[in-house]
């Protein structure tokens, strides 16, 4: 069982939801990332997504684009991110790490070499936002050779036949993007999310994570009602940005925010309490 699957089973056995948190590797500087990952874990995150900086992140909003720009300006590329995961893994053998980003930096290393390096660094899953399953066979095969889970997105526009095809390729968990738009956009429509998550559950046994648009503990709690995992990205990255000049303050702010997400997610069900 992969570290990701194991983490989901653990939480499920405890009757809790899984909290997935995102940060961009190397933002705002290469030294900041590992302590921030440790802070996320200490504050209640179950799985860490580390963004691979890319110059043209077309699926992301301004918050993540700015994080990519800061990371690139401070000299972090894909190999740098792998180094950060390796360092994180020295102290933490339990928390799953998922790399998230765009295909081109991976292509430049080469799929097979990338999979080898990622596995050696202690990565557990890979999510490439601009790689649909139609184009993904080669990368999926390379990841499979190293027991890395390919994580795929399902969108509000994805029809049922595609959901099936995507779930056939997926391992670890399926990531439902709960909004039309880019990361960090607008507000949450919980009924629509619930409907789509149900459709995904009809086609796969894999846990379903929901992300895009989670801003606070209440959002997390509401999504936790319908999904197995809640993914939070832009709201964390904007706190890192706010304190880019002061690492201790950044750690403090992200820690407090993550604890509030955890508390929201672990609170008794809203329906039960209302």
């Amino acid at each position: 069982m992969s570290r990701i699957s194991h983490r989901f089973s653990q939480r499920r056995a405890e009757g809790r939801k899984t909290l997935v948190t995102y940060l961009t590797g190397g933002d705002p500087n290469p030294q900041a990332t590992v302590p921030m990952m440790q802070t996320l874990v200490a504050s209640g995150a179950d799985i860490i997504e580390v963004g691979m900086p890319f110059s043209d992140p077309m699926a992301d909003g301004p918050v993540i684009q700015a994080a990519c720009d800061r990371a690139l300006a401070a000299g972090t590329g894909l190999r740098g991110v792998l180094e950060m995961v390796r360092e994180f893994r020295r102290e933490d053998q339990d928390t799953p790490v998922v790399l998230m980003g765009y295909l081109n930096p991976i292509e430049q290393i080469g799929y097979i070499e990338f999979a080898r390096l990622a596995a050696a660094a202690g990565v557990d899953g890979v999510l490439t936002v601009d790689l649909p399953p139609e184009e993904g066979n080669e990368l999926v095969a390379a990841l499979a050779d190293h027991d890395l889970d390919p994580i795929w997105l399902v969108a509000p526009t994805t029809r049922i036949e595609r959901i099936r095809a995507i779930c056939d390729h997926a391992r670890g968990f399926v990531y439902y993007v709960s909004l039309k738009g880019v990361t960090g956009a607008a507000t949450l429509d919980i009924d629509s999310v619930s409907e789509h998550v149900e459709a995904i559950r009809q086609t796969t046994q894999l846990p379903v994570g929901v992300g895009f648009g989670v801003r606070n503990g209440d959002d997390a709690a509401r999504l936790g009602e319908v999904a197995d995992a809640v993914v939070v990205g832009s709201a964390i990255v904007s706190r890192i940005a706010e304190h880019a000049e002061d690492q201790a303050a950044g750690i403090e702010a992200v820690g407090a925010f993550t604890r509030s997400l955890r508390a929201g997610l672990d609170a008794p069900s809203l329906e039960a309490s209302s």
């Binding site: 184009e135 399902v154 993007v177």
Partner: peptide
């Protein structure tokens, strides 16, 4: 060529 886009754009 091909179609390398986020899942959201596959349907459109």
């Amino acid at each position: 060529g091909g179609r390398f886009v986020p899942e959201l754009l596959m349907a459109p």
